[in-house]
Design a binder for these strands. Structure first.
Lengths: 122, 122
DNA sequence: CGGCATCCGGAGGGATACTG
DNA sequence: CAGTATCCCTCCGGATGCCG
């Protein structure tokens, strides 16, 4: 069977996987799964993320309908980010992957060190 | 709750997610799930991948113990790539994510066009 | 407080050519 | 057949600074 990443069906799946794979998106989703947050709360909750990247990620997630953005007018302005139903439905599969990663971690680390030893000694 | 991508526990989970998210790795895994293949068979099966990237991905997957590489000596040389048990165990979560993507696709595409319309018209 | 604009370095990914 | 080596280029991600 031939797999074509540009085939119409696989196209958006690849998109999703890329989204899931990028450095911050799933961290955002997992954080918002616990509770809706304001921008800077989110920034503090996700240690190490820059404003830039957080902003970009939130935009992208909002565009895809995974995150809902609500502006509360006032002084100062407050913007609340919350997962949509679609976003919440993503949490299951992602957590499954996370659980797999946790289980597989020892095996992967062992395999890596073994592989590296063989190749460094060469 | 604070999420730190550099916290020891989250570190490798992030690694895994990044691996899952890159352009070819999961395509390789899904292809090998059907049957073990030789290098060029794999290259033909995954439309559009370069030798370079396929080679790199296979190395990385082998290093992590997800793929097993077997050299069959002879003329010409044949190298067979197959999923390890660990690799096969990854297929479940990945397929779950794929299924989610397939289900979510219409909603996501609709959300994107709506979002883009609002912002282009501005 | 919640962003966007700009600049920058480095990694990711591709084309091509060459080797065992 | 199964790669490695080289070159190149884009885009991700971070730092900084400015604006409503």
């Amino acid at each position: 069977m031939v797999h074509d990443p540009n085939g119409k069906d696989c196209r958006l799946v690849g998109d999703i996987l890329a989204r899931v794979g990028d450095k911050w998106s799933m961290l955002v989703v997992m954080t918002l799964l616990e509770a809706p947050l304001h921008f800077n709360e989110l920034k503090r909750a996700i240690r190490g993320v820059s404003q830039q990247m957080l902003s970009r990620n939130l935009r992208a997630l909002e565009r895809d309908g995974l995150v809902e953005r609500t502006v509360h007018v006032g002084v100062p302005v407050r913007v609340e980010y919350a997962l949509s139903d679609l976003g919440r439905s993503l949490a299951g599969p992602v957590q499954a992957l996370g659980a797999w990663a946790a289980r597989a971690r020892p095996a992967i680390e062992a395999s890596r060190t073994a592989f590296d030893r063989e190749h460094d000694a060469q």
